[in-house]
Structures are given as structure tokens and as C-alpha cells.
Amino acid sequence: MRINADADRCVGAGQCVLAAPDLFDQDDDGTVTVLTEPGAATKDAAREAVHLCPSGAITLEDG
């Protein structure tokens, strides 16, 4: 599984960080940054972050 985060689409709501703090952070402007790719223990949190993102800036690729 791979995380794609579109910084241009991000609105800085921070829902991804709240849902999966091991996977996401925000830069000084509030834009999403990916810290690491999800492992077995964080796949559900990654999916939750995608679901909660109000702008659709986060997507997942299986594979």
C-alpha cells in the first residue's frame, strides 16, 4: 500500500494527522506531509485518513 498526498489540493484540516499520526504530519503552512508508508499495523488508520480528508487530497494505492 502506498499513500499519495496532493499538497495542492490539501486544505490543512489536519484530519489525516488526527486519524494516523504515525503516517502524516503538517508542514508550517498546514499542508499534509507523508511521514512513512503504511505497514500492517497502520493500514486501517491510513484508510480512515483517506475517508476523513475533506478535500480528497489523500489517496491510497494497493500493490
Rank of each mutant, 00 (worst) to 15 (best):
T33S: 05
T59D: 14
A7K: 14
Q26W: 01
R47G: 05
G56D: 06
D8K: 14
D28W: 00
A57L: 06
T42V: 01
S55K: 03
C16G: 10
G30Y: 00
A20L: 09
D44P: 03
F24K: 04
R47L: 12
D29R: 11
V50K: 13
D25N: 09
G56R: 11
G56C: 06
S55R: 02
T31W: 00
D27L: 03
C10H: 11
R9V: 15
C16A: 07
D8N: 14
L35T: 04
D8M: 11
D28A: 13
G39A: 10
R9K: 15
T31N: 01
T36D: 13
A49Q: 04
P38H: 05
A20R: 10
D27T: 01
Q15W: 07
D62M: 07
G39S: 12
G30Q: 00
Q26E: 06
G12Y: 07
C53Q: 06
L60K: 08
H51F: 13
L60A: 07
P54M: 05
A57V: 06
Q15N: 13
P21Y: 05
L52V: 03
R2W: 08
D44C: 00
D6S: 11
A45D: 15
A20I: 11
T36E: 14
R2Q: 15
P21Q: 03
E37I: 05
C53R: 09
